[in-house]
Design a protein around this nucleic acid. Structure first.
Ligand SMILES: [Zn+2]
Ligand SMILES: [Zn+2]
Ligand SMILES: [Zn+2]
Ligand SMILES: [Zn+2]
Lengths: 142, 142
DNA sequence: TCTTCAAACGCGACACTGTCGCGTTAGTAA
DNA sequence: TTACTAACGCGACAGTGTCGCGTTTGAAGA
């Protein structure tokens, strides 16, 4: 994450009258560095490295807050477990290895933007966004 | 669901040495009729209409069993709640109304099959399947 | 620096979810 | 009718996510 992005996020938080607490700063830092969806459990471990210890309820509340501010977004994969990732990014999708469970980010070519239109013509439905995840075997597991 | 499909499913179960219990028959019937992903909660309500009452653990075990037999499949949407739908169907996707939460099935044109190939050329990853869900407003909520 | 205020926090309680072991029931075939 | 075992009910359990409430603390102003 570029410093300008970080500064922008912090500025918007201050304008909104929100505090820059250690937990909040650490989470933004973590999400900015880890460019992949993280489980709550993984977040906990990454927080350990920062010496920050928070109650379960506090972490949940912070994630709800960060999502409401569009700083992070939730990702749903096949296992039904909720994951979170940095939202200040280009539109992208995920490759999930069904063997080692590794998750990679992937950006498709411009062709994909035909997706939403492909549906609108068939149904009386106004598409706002979509979720597209690929499953298979990664290079190491293939 | 056509009668031949039902007969086929029941035959394979018998061959596998599995019993045709009231719960099992009712669930197959329900999934065959409701062509959309169902929450566990919704399944419970639909079962009420059949006068069948089962313990929580039994229902979970039956869903695991039906999924292992490829009779049903799980669907992951944005809210992270697990849903189940009939698996003996053509490849399709979903339209989820973010307002009234209604879920419709949708089959895209042949164009979509370029999706998996679009990724394989960029990454050292062998795609086996994908999950594609659209979100927006349905006709009634638009 | 000191005061003030609300955002954020810790804590405990709670309902819900999903799983497991074990003794019992019931579908199926002999 | 008998026998076998898949399926079941039940209770217990750990894990998950939420809530209320009293306390702490970041940030701004005196
Ligand atoms: Zn896309
Ligand atoms: Zn792998
Ligand atoms: Zn598809
Ligand atoms: Zn709607």
């Amino acid at each position: 994450m570029a410093d300008t992005e970080m500064a922008e996020i912090l500025y918007e938080l201050e304008v909104g009258g929100h505090k820059l607490t250690p937990l909040r700063l650490a989470l933004i830092e973590i999400f900015g560095r880890q460019q992949r969806p993280l489980l709550l459990e993984e977040l906990g471990k990454l927080l350990m490295g920062t010496l920050i210890r928070v109650h379960r309820a506090t972490l949940y509340r912070e994630l709800v807050f960060l999502e409401s501010r569009k700083i992070i977004a939730t990702v749903s994969l096949e296992d039904g477990k909720r994951r979170y990732e940095f939202a200040d990014r280009d539109h992208h999708h995920h490759l999930v290895c069904t063997s080692c469970k590794k998750i990679e980010d992937v950006e498709l070519k411009d062709d994909e933007h035909g997706l939403d239109k492909l549906v609108k013509t068939q149904n009386d439905f106004l598409i706002t966004h979509h979720s597209l995840e690929f499953f298979g075997l990664c290079g190491a597991c293939k």
